[in-house]
Structure formats: structure tokens, C-alpha cells
């Protein structure tokens, strides 16, 4: 009560100053070229707000002294880093309950790594390392399969009799663009609506969360199911984890497409062209049925493959191949 009620009253002038200052700072900041510096005024702003709150607290509760407050802050930050969400009641996603633990394993082996939970004990860390060593490849294989399935579904659709079979190149382009657009709609544009509804984020925040998740960057500044004051429907988390799985397969496909676009004009990979022209397709289809071949095997070392970073389901190579042949 005290902190909250005193805030609006006393530091009005202070806040005004705080609001003016970042604008001045922003003009200074805009000069250098990095667009990322565009973010700095806001960091300033929230930093200022934090200091204002701190000083108000010190003023209102006169028995507090600076060092005591600092030590309190240190304690809080440490507890927060330790993964205790320190405000009494938290959701199950933020604790090592089975739900949170499951969510943690998903975020580990997909290499999203939100970091809202992270292992603290040495034993758990060691296990985490070995778990990821096995899990990340497993995840890649699963994503591959899913990508194949998705691609195949699209292909089958495009081979329906009423689509003209005499122009296979066009049909393939159509298939490619359908994959792109439907995926865009299904995985990147619609889910933010759900997040906006359930989590109370703005649409843009939801979109940002969706992208940061699916690209496996995973900052962890927005994580679903973390707000203790909301009650989430039961199907919510399951739906979201399914979305992560399929969406990653799809986004990896897109990123692979971008990759081939970036690579293509350079033409330094003669064997890439060779393979896409020659028996590339036949080979990929021959090899794909036997289960354990990784996507690397279809393009024998010529076409650059992502290291462990990107999941690259194979079908995207076919999308790019289609584009080339037509």
C-alpha cells in the first residue's frame, strides 16, 4: 500500500524530468548507425523509473539505509536468478513441478532455452548436458520427419486432378507458395491472437514471442503460462507445445529457403548446382526412406548444411530445387 500509494503523489516533478530526459538522450543516440541503439532510450526510461521507486522507498521508510536496501536488492536478484519467482504464489510453469520440468526439457532440446528455469545443482547440470547431447539430434530427426510430412501433404494436394498436371513447374511453385502462406498464417499470424487473448499481450508482443520462440532464439522475456494472476485453460499448454513442434519444422523450412536464396547468386558451389540438376532428386528420394540418414547425406558435403544451430528439414531443399529447375 505504502509504496504504491505514495508513488503518484510525491515524485510528479521527478517523473516529468524522467520523461523529458530520454527524449534528449534519444536524439543523441539516434546519430550512430546501429539501429539496435534505438532501444536504448527505453532502457534508460525503465532504469530511471526503478531509481525513482527506490528513492521513494528510502524516503518513506526512514529506518532503511542505503546499504541495507542494496543488500535486500542483491538477495532478491539472486533469488530471482535461482529460478524462484519470488512473489509467493507462482504458476506451475515456473517451478520444478512436472509441467514446468517438461516445459524445461522441451526448451532445452529444441535449443530455445528460455531460461525461466535452469538447473542449479551440479548433478542436474551434468544431466542437462547429456540430455541435450542426445535430445538435440533426436529433435532434429523428429523435425525432419514432420517437415517431410508437411511437404508431402502439400505435394499431394497440388497433384489433385483438377490442378493442371501439364505444367509441373507451375504446380511446384504453387505448392511452395501454399506452404509458405498457409504456414505463415497458421504458425506466425494466428497464434498471436491466441496469446493476446490468453496472456493479455498486445498482438505485436504475441507475434514477437512467436517468432523468437520458433526461430529458437528464445530470449525468455516473454514466456507463456508464467502469469500467476491468470488461470489458463487446460488445453492451452498442450496446444502451444504442439504449435512449437510444427511451427519449428515450418520456420526451419523458411530459413532454409532464405539460406538457399543467400547462397544461390554466389554460385561458388558448383556441386550444389550439379546435384540439383542431376540425380539430386532421385537420390534424395532413394535415401529418405531408410530411417536414420540425416539430411546431410542427400547433399554430399557440397551444399552447406547448418551446423547444429539450425534445424533443417530436408523438404526445403526440394522447394529451393524446384525454384531452380523452373
Amino acid at each position: 500500500m505504502a509504496l504504491g500509494s505514495s508513488l503518484p503523489a510525491s515524485p510528479a516533478s521527478c517523473r516529468q524530468r524522467a520523461r523529458e530526459a530520454p527524449e534528449g538522450g534519444g536524439r543523441g543516440c539516434a546519430v550512430p548507425g546501429t539501429l539496435l541503439l534505438l532501444l536504448s532510450p527505453v532502457a534508460h526510461d525503465s532504469s530511471r523509473r526503478f531509481w525513482r521507486d527506490k528513492w521513494t522507498l528510502l524516503q518513506n521508510f526512514t529506518c532503511l539505509d542505503g546499504p541495507a536496501l542494496d543488500s535486500l536488492i542483491r538477495g532478491i536478484v539472486e533469488a530471482y536468478q535461482n529460478g524462484d519467482i519470488v512473489l509467493g504464489n507462482t504458476t506451475s510453469m515456473g517451478r520444478w513441478e512436472i509441467v514446468g520440468s517438461f516445459f524445461f526439457s522441451v526448451s532445452t532440446i529444441t535449443t530455445i532455452g528460455y531460461g525461466n528455469l535452469s538447473p542449479r545443482t551440479m548433478a542436474a547440470r551434468l544431466f542437462c548436458i547429456s540430455f541435450a547431447l542426445v535430445g538435440i539430434p533426436l529433435n532434429l530427426v523428429v523435425l525432419n520427419r514432420l517437415g517431410h510430412l508437411m511437404q508431402q501433404g502439400v505435394h499431394r494436394c497440388s497433384r489433385r486432378p483438377h490442378v493442371h498436371p501439364q505444367d509441373p513447374a507451375k504446380a511446384r511453385w504453387l505448392a511452395g507458395s501454399i506452404t509458405l502462406l498457409s504456414g505463415l498464417l497458421l504458425f506466425l499470424l494466428l497464434p498471436p491472437l491466441l496469446f493476446a487473448h490468453v496472456e493479455g499481450w498486445s498482438y505485436l508482443e504475441g507475434f514477437y514471442f512467436a517468432f523468437i520462440t520458433l526461430s529458437t532464439v528464445g530470449f525468455g522475456d516473454y514466456v507463456i503460462g508464467m502469469d500467476p494472476s491468470r488461470n489458463y485453460p487446460l488445453w492451452y499448454k498442450n496446444t502451444v507445445s504442439l504449435w512449437i513442434l510444427f511451427g519449428m519444422a515450418w520456420l526451419a523450412l523458411i530459413i532454409k529457403l532464405m539460406l538457399s536464396l543467400l547462397e544461390a547468386p554466389r554460385g561458388s558451389y558448383s556441386c550444389y548446382r550439379h546435384s540439383s540438376k542431376g540425380n539430386f532428386k532421385a537420390q534424395s528420394w532413394r535415401q529418405s526412406p531408410d530411417g536414420e540418414t540425416e539430411p546431410h547425406s542427400t547433399q554430399p558435403g557440397c551444399c552447406p548444411e547448418g551446423p547444429i544451430i539450425m534445424q533443417h528439414p530436408e523438404p526445403s531443399t526440394q522447394v529451393s530445387g524446384c525454384g531452380k529447375e523452373s
Partner: peptide, 25 residues
């Protein structure tokens, strides 16, 4: 002189600052 509620609120403020990337230390 501190009461429970003020402390809780302060904790929240610090957490928000931390999440926003402000180092409260």
C-alpha cells in the same frame, strides 16, 4: 518500519527492473 506489503511491492519492482535489463545493484 517496513511492512509486508511494501516489501512485496518492492520485490515486484526489482523483478520488473531486472527483467527489463536494468541492473538494480
Amino acid at each position: 518500519c517496513l511492512d509486508q506489503q511494501a516489501l512485496e511491492q518492492f520485490v515486484q519492482v526489482i523483478m520488473e527492473a531486472w527483467v527489463k535489463g536494468v541492473n538494480p545493484k
